[in-house]
């Protein structure tokens, strides 16, 4: 078939313009982003998603709220053939599982990578840290006096039916197992968390709900529970809003540092816009906005954050000094086993 001159010229033009068209197309589309629900969603939308859409009018971000990282992984696995999530933010230990299953795409070529702290990168896990946080004890300061200083406070019989703990597979419950194991002298968690599990089964009568909805923070501010476990960032924001109904503590035995990994889903349809979004979410502007709004420690070394906000994040020297050395990749290996033991020995116990 012979092409007449005009279409041929048009074809040539298209060929020459292709790189630009592709570039332009990368700036357009709708991407689905899976991350935590509740207060995290509210603040992440306001601080990151909406400013991003304003800066990139061609891209629409659909925020798909997820109850826990484990649920996100479940969705990724079930949709391996035709993923509908383009980018996800979830716990690094869960991201490790997703990486091993071949569900995630490498994003180390994004321009923003060179601005990030070295601790944002975890070897053997695709994606890169999007938030830093730490595990905390939550309590109602007007009802729990004196303020608790040890994880063992949860075992005090005076708190019968007064404690809210989110059970595994949620990472809050996994972390509680590690802390219980540590507090009660269970030794190296890599070998066994048996002591922790046995001890938690003992305190089951103290627990009001293993599935506090909307979240453990609200259980305390609403007066349903007196103590709970959760994350520093969310605790800080609820604490500020509650007018003294909730306080955050790091017990003497120490606590855990937690990383949420920002990841690109392999085989998803909107990889272009998703990369643009991830690049923005890790950039200085978004990191500053989110930290100052919700007190997650930034992953971007160049983000200029007010001392006041930074003082409430996990990244303060005194908090960092209390963090235990926990290998989240090791946790990735044992977390399914921990969840199963919880279902068997703890949750059905009364």
């Amino acid at each position: 078939m012979r092409l007449s001159p005009l279409p041929r010229r048009a074809l040539l033009g298209t060929a020459l313009a292709t790189p630009f068209i592709q570039r332009a197309r990368a700036e357009e589309g709708t991407l689905t982003f899976g991350a935590y629900s509740g207060i995290f969603e509210d603040n992440y939308r306001a601080a990151v998603v909406e400013p991003f859409m304003k800066a990139n009018p061609g891209i629409k971000v659909v925020y798909y709220p997820m109850g826990s990282s484990a649920q996100t992984l479940g969705v990724l696995r079930a949709q391996k053939a035709a993923p509908q999530l383009d980018a996800v933010l979830f716990d690094v230990s869960v991201a490790k599982g997703a990486t091993d299953d071949g569900l995630l795409e490498d994003i180390s070529d994004l321009p923003v990578m060179k601005e990030l702290f070295p601790s944002a990168f975890t070897k053997g896990v695709s994606g890169v840290a999007g938030t830093f946080d730490n595990y905390v004890m939550l309590y109602a300061p007007d009802k729990v006096k004196p303020a608790p200083t040890s994880w063992k406070a949860f075992w005090d019989p005076q708190f019968k039916d007064q404690i809210a703990i989110t059970a595994p597979p949620d990472i809050v419950g996994i972390s509680f197992t590690l802390m219980a194991n540590k507090a009660w002298g269970g030794g190296d968690y890599r070998k066994s968390v048996e002591t922790g599990l046995a001890k938690i089964a003992e305190m089951a009568p103290n627990v009001l709900s293993w599935n506090p909805t909307p979240d453990p923070y609200t259980f305390i501010t609403q007066g349903q529970a007196k103590m709970a476990v959760g994350w520093n960032a969310r605790g800080q924001i609820y604490s500020a809003a509650s007018g003294g109904k909730l306080a955050v503590a790091i017990p003497s035995e120490g606590s855990l540092f937690q990383i949420n990994n920002m990841c690109l889903v392999k085989g998803a349809k909107n990889t272009g816009p998703a990369k643009t979004f991830i690049n923005y979410a890790l950039g200085t502007e978004a990191q500053k906005a989110f930290t100052e709004r919700m007190f997650y420690a930034p992953v971007n070394a160049k983000a200029q954050i007010s001392a006041e906000a930074l003082g409430r994040t996990a990244a303060t020297p005194e908090r960092m000094a209390n963090m235990l050395d926990v290998d989240w990749l090791e946790i990735a290996r044992i977390r399914d086993g921990i969840s199963e033991q919880w279902r068997r020995r703890i949750l059905t116990k009364r």
């Binding site: 484990a70 649920q71 479940g74 696995r77 079930a78 989110t166 059970a167 597979p169 009001l208 709900s209 293993w210 599935n211 506090p212 909805t213 399914d336 969840s339 279902r343 949750l347 059905t348 009364r350």
Partner: peptide, 23 residues
């Protein structure tokens, strides 16, 4: 699921957890 506070585990809830979360 909604009213049990994570404490009421029945055949159906276990099937859901094994199928959707643990896979």
């Amino acid at each position: 699921k909604l009213l049990g506070g994570g404490r009421v585990i029945l055949l159906a809830t276990e099937i859901y957890d094994q199928a959707i979360v643990t896979l």
